[in-house]
Design a protein around this nucleic acid. Structure first.
Lengths: 121, 121
DNA sequence: TCGTTATAGAACCATATGGTTATGGAATGA
DNA sequence: TCATTCCATAACCATATGGTTCTATAACGA
């Protein structure tokens, strides 16, 4: 799988709120399929399908514990998209600078600008 | 649109390599639809559809310059998913720590290694 | 061995996605 | 006014996605 295909699979996996909720649950520790299914008004096979999408992206791995197939979250794909995002960090920081400049202008159009307070992430 | 729906739209938009390539191009500056379409073996309406997906996610905005509708990249949704990602940073940092520990073990198997927490991997 | 539990898979359905070609419409320029 | 340029929309198609129900299988517990 190319790096682009891995990004595809990861973004696709993250594009569904059920799957993000599953990831959030797994961030607190391993869980079986039925445990993961409980909170959702959805059948067990539907959850299994979602897990398959997450697994294809490498976002989870699965073990074996008696009849259970415990799922574990895997960080690598998240690290990868974080790295991808870094290429664009200057974009949103520039956007915020423009916004700040605008707000300052609106608040004190005649004053010299002061440095921003409060962090923007 | 809820915050979850905005995340959905953003991840969906980023899940296609054509759209990521368009964003990469726009990171270097504004471009018209035809300019964006040039590098791709794809019809202009196909590009227009991709732009619509990007626009729905708020990843681009469009101006007007004579017949052209120049596209500009917008950083906000990227900042949002960066913020979402931060919730998981410890996950991949833990993963890397486990990997580091494993590599150390492999390199110096006779040495006493600090006991790993957790029985996995 | 037999039933139960946990999960996966198959078949099916509705809708979404990503592409096409053909067409329409706004702004430009001659 | 009229042709051209730039772009969007419509209609269509194939495939993917996200759900369902029903069934099969693997591992346990009695």
């Amino acid at each position: 799988m190319t790096s682009s295909e891995r990004l595809n699979a990861t973004f696709i996996a993250l594009a569904d709120p059920t799957r993000r909720a599953i990831l959030a649950r797994l961030a607190t520790g391993e869980a079986s399929v039925l445990e993961l299914a409980k909170p959702f008004a959805m059948s067990q096979p539907a959850i299994s399908k979602h897990l398959k999408v997450l697994e294809r992206a490498g976002l989870i791995s699965r073990g074996r514990d008696a009849q259970r197939r415990p799922c574990r979250i895997e960080g690598k794909p998240l690290a990868d998209i974080s790295e991808w995002l870094e290429n664009y960090r200057r974009i949103w920081e520039e956007n915020f600078q423009r916004l700040d400049a605008l707000l300052e202008e609106l608040q004190a159009p005649e004053k010299k600008t002061a440095p921003r307070k409060g962090k923007r992430l």
